[in-house]
Design a protein around this nucleic acid. Sequence first.
DNA 1: AAAAACTGTGTCCCATAGACACTGATATTT
DNA 2: AAATATCAGTGTCTATGGGACACAGTTTTT
Lengths: 238, 238
Amino acid sequence: MGGEHAEVVRLLWGPHPKPARGPRPTLDLERIARAGVEIADSKGLTDVSMQRVAAKLGVTKMALYRYVPGKVELVALMVDVAIGPYPAAKARRGGWREQLEEWARRLLAVFRQHSWVLDATAGPRIMGPGELSWLERAVSALDGTGLSGAERMDAAVLLVGHVRGITQQARAAGPAGNPEAQLGAILGDLMQAHGERFPALAVAFASAAQSDGQDQAWDFGLQRILDGLAALIDQRAR
Amino acid sequence: MGGEHAEVVRLLWGPHPKPARGPRPTLDLERIARAGVEIADSKGLTDVSMQRVAAKLGVTKMALYRYVPGKVELVALMVDVAIGPYPAAKARRGGWREQLEEWARRLLAVFRQHSWVLDATAGPRIMGPGELSWLERAVSALDGTGLSGAERMDAAVLLVGHVRGITQQARAAGPAGNPEAQLGAILGDLMQAHGERFPALAVAFASAAQSDGQDQAWDFGLQRILDGLAALIDQRAR
DNA sequence: AAAAACTGTGTCCCATAGACACTGATATTT
DNA sequence: AAATATCAGTGTCTATGGGACACAGTTTTT
């Protein structure tokens, strides 16, 4: 049961006892993960190979296998390190809405900084302590709102989905020359060129191209979700 | 400009003139893409290799390169074939809300049937005609609601994000023995085991485990989004 | 009939993940 | 202090992946 997942769990959730005998380890999981994150941040996830991570640490490829069972486990570790624990909870201010708003904004910042995390976290997977601490924060922000436990989790998942969606999205706007703007421009051209097949899209996209781009889509979705939650919470309050 | 994307565009958006001279092609893009989709559906995206796709078609690996520039382009094609065009629009019934609800449900069905599409569509990319036809349908469902073009697109993107989020999510519920249920169980165990670090999460998850599972999260998020849209549309109507 | 254009194949190269045996370092045990 | 078990890093090997390239065979045009 969960056989192949067992190693990921052990790696992410430890414990990692230091060996009693034998030579001192040159590396540790933290350093390895950070090396991988650096590569992924600058060159993308596809450029992360055991070779390159090892090279960055001044070690042979095979040395890494003393710490990490395989590449999938390494990537899982990288994800949790990149996301990190939720920033230390200073006194929480504001109601659930303000709290969730700040939470979502911080999460978006993390995803923007490590956009490869999107690739690494497609599909169901085991989450690490860092990722769970984010989830914990979102769920606990909804304590006392009258929502059930399942609903509080569903709300958090909904917000995560929006953050992911925005991170993934390409819009025509933005500084010219960045690769995402290219994509948006190409898509816009395609819609115009096939305007008869996509009449509503062509119009909408032309209008969207003049707006503020990604930030607008972000705020729009976030406010819609929070409005929807507010409606439910209000309703439950009666 | 967009140099590397040009080939994807040509592949997805054609034209594909049949050659005047030379031997008749054994294959066509459609068959190749479908072969890839079959493999991905049954064994996952990582098991899709040029080798295997070619083998399934009874040709050599290199024969595929006569039709497809490379693997990334093949995957892009597979995605658009798997998603397909939006089902022929019978007379549209209902208001924007009913239309979007049906639209989202259909999209979820597609993602559930081809869950590898999640992996293949992480990150900004060029969309094919099939994908765009879905987007067109969602945007046009919001025609006449008073939302701006940008807002209509943002709403569609928001819904897509939710569909993706749900597809990606693993819940403890579901038929025992399926791999996703395993994941949910493991995560639940972890939360319980580290309950002191994730108090709100442990409680919420325990409550969620007794609920209907994924379908509940789906409906919850969908209704919240639609409620949020309704609130905005109402407000604009005045 | 010859040439041109095109398709599928066979062979090559390079990068990648990973297995395994080996050398050497370190701490416990005798 | 010496022997030994344990562990770290290395070098070598295999299998699999994507892709380049030249070549032979086929079909249309000249």
